[in-house]
Amino acid sequence: MRIVVCVKHVPDLMADRRLGEDGRVARDGGDGTLNELDENAVEAALVLAEEHDAEVVALTMGPDDAEDAVRRALQMGADRAVHVLDDALAGTDVFGTARVLAAAVRRIAEDGPVDLVMTGMASLDALTSMLPAALAAELDLPQLTLAAGVDVADGAVRVRRDLDHATEVLRAPLPALVSVTDQANEPRYPAFAGIMAARKKPVDTVDLADLGIDPATVGTGGARTQVLSAAERPPRTDRVLITDEGDAGVRLAEYLVEHKLV
């Protein structure tokens, strides 16, 4: 069995995240990290791999420092990694990303069939959560998204998921695509031995030519939408901090009335 887990390098949540002048996510902060929800995907892949003796391949697309994301996955226990790196990819939208990742998954499948493709439910930078569904569509795989729990048995995958209005259990035959939420597990912290072992694990760097993708169809030029402008929410002013001396409840009520919030 072979599992491909897609990971993304994102600006650290605690850092000052911003959009650049071109309206794209500024990735020059230098304090990026593996998208936390992808850690849940890596963890889920590793648990399934331990149960089913599978190979786990970490896959990422992005500039040079995106290798940090696959390196983290390797430290956690993934066996090898593929990094799609090409200058023409800057500014690629979710549909271009899905096409590139699908081509990379098919390339990995040349070594032997891929049974599961796993992702986090969203990246914590753009957070559109469209990629898993778009990737499943590109790969023509059954999709089982937003999994809070995932099991594989008898050639089928089964997930439990909590939606806005309902709880569901879904089942589909392999191969399939699964996206996981942060409810799915507690990602392991890489042990020292894992960090050392990861240094020797192979990272295969491929470009668009290797994947047979025309550079003109990706990047900013291939995007179906265009950012015109971007603005940060203005900072809050007139903020008040009080300590309760028995009167804070009354002051809260007065504040709400004064600011016409009731």
């Binding site: 959009l19 309206g23 179906r224 939408t225 265009q226 015109l228 402008s229 971007a230 603005a231 940060e232």
Partner: peptide
């Protein structure tokens, strides 16, 4: 925390 304005091409 940010808003962006976009056009659909």
């Amino acid at each position: 925390t940010w808003t962006s304005r976009c056009t659909v091409r």
